[in-house]
């Protein structure tokens, strides 16, 4: 009897979490859709001018901005993260692993405003004063570097799990055929763990798209389509956070419309990550592989 009461109470709590998500979704769409329809979705999705005080609500510069800094973050974060994961899962002695893994997880716990502050104080002046780079420093490049570091824990964590889920027999088979350790890692382990790694990369991408504070502090936030990575950019999240406090009327609705675009992008990325993982499980099950049931994350 008591068990059942607790079970019901917990179910209620769990449902409330889903309920909150549903409410947020409804709220964003209810606030943002009217202006999308009154201006036409074309204005938002293809307009290149964002001047709310004059009624221009083009989101293209922000969509491009988000895409550039996210892509940049992946260029920096994926090779580093993957290398880290391989070292930690395959090469590092257990003692080093014991220290390194929690250290990397700690990276995820640093508040984004701290990343932003370090970026603003060190990275931005460094880019500005570097003769090879130059510009104002506040740039897509600065945002990409900061984000590249911020997505490391996500990529490393999920990649390690994926690499560890590769059955021992794969490695043994490869070594038995005369492959070196390096050949085993690049030729067998990583391909076998590919879908888990891809899921990690996509989730890292979601984090990069969604990050706000650190980006606002280093990206410069100009509303323009940049012609170089040294030019300032504004991301979708920065657009909302920067202007929300002062916005009213249609301007405020347009920011909710920005949130709708962001929401759809994040949903797509998360679904993709889920798909990547599921595909892997199904493949293994078909092969009758014992590791098929192992959760990757």
């Amino acid at each position: 009897m008591k068990d059942r009461v607790i079970e019901k109470a917990l179910l209620l709590a769990a449902l409330s979490a889903i309920g909150i998500l549903a409410l947020i979704t409804i709220f964003i769409f209810r606030e943002g859709l009217p202006v999308v329809f009154s201006k036409g979705p074309g204005e938002f999705l293809t307009g290149t001018v964002w001047q709310p005080s004059r009624g221009h609500y083009g989101l293209v510069p922000m969509i491009v901005g988000s895409a550039i800094v996210t892509f940049g973050a992946l260029i920096i974060g994926v090779p580093l993260g993957l290398a880290c994961a391989v070292v930690l899962a395959e090469m590092a002695p257990p003692r080093a692993r014991k220290i390194l893994k929690p250290t990397i997880e700690l990276l995820a716990g640093i508040p984004s405003v701290v990343y932003g502050f370090i970026g603003m104080m060190i990275l931005v002046p460094w880019i500005r004063n570097n003769p090879a780079l130059g510009g104002t420093g506040s740039s897509a490049l600065a945002a990409s570097i900061i984000l590249g570091i911020m997505i490391l824990p996500t990529i490393i964590g999920i990649s390690i799990d994926a690499i560890e889920a590769v059955p021992r027999s794969y490695r043994e088979g490869s070594r038995a055929l005369g492959a070196t350790e390096w050949q085993t890692i690049t030729g067998v382990v990583i391909p076998a763990a590919r879908s888990g790694i891809v899921a990690g990369v996509i989730l890292g991408m979601g984090r990069a798209v969604g990050e706000t504070m650190a980006v606002i502090m280093v990206a410069g936030n100009s509303v323009q389509i940049p012609d170089s990575i040294l030019k300032p950019v504004r991301t979708l999240t920065a657009n909302i956070a920067l202007e929300m406090s002062y916005a009213s009327g249609q301007h405020e609705q347009a920011l909710f419309a920005t949130a709708i675009v962001l929401f759809i992008i994040i949903m797509l990325l998360n679904s993709l990550a889920g798909l990547a993982r599921r595909k892997k499980k199904r493949k293994r099950k078909l092969k009758g592989d014992p590791a098929g049931g192992v959760e990757v994350a």
Binding site: V49, T136, I216, M217, N221, S222, V223, L242
Partner: peptide
């Protein structure tokens, strides 16, 4: 101009 850098606070402008 659209190319101007945007800061959300007085403190941010001053710091930059």
């Amino acid at each position: 101009a659209a190319s101007a850098i945007v800061q959300g606070q007085t403190g941010g402008v001053r710091t930059m």
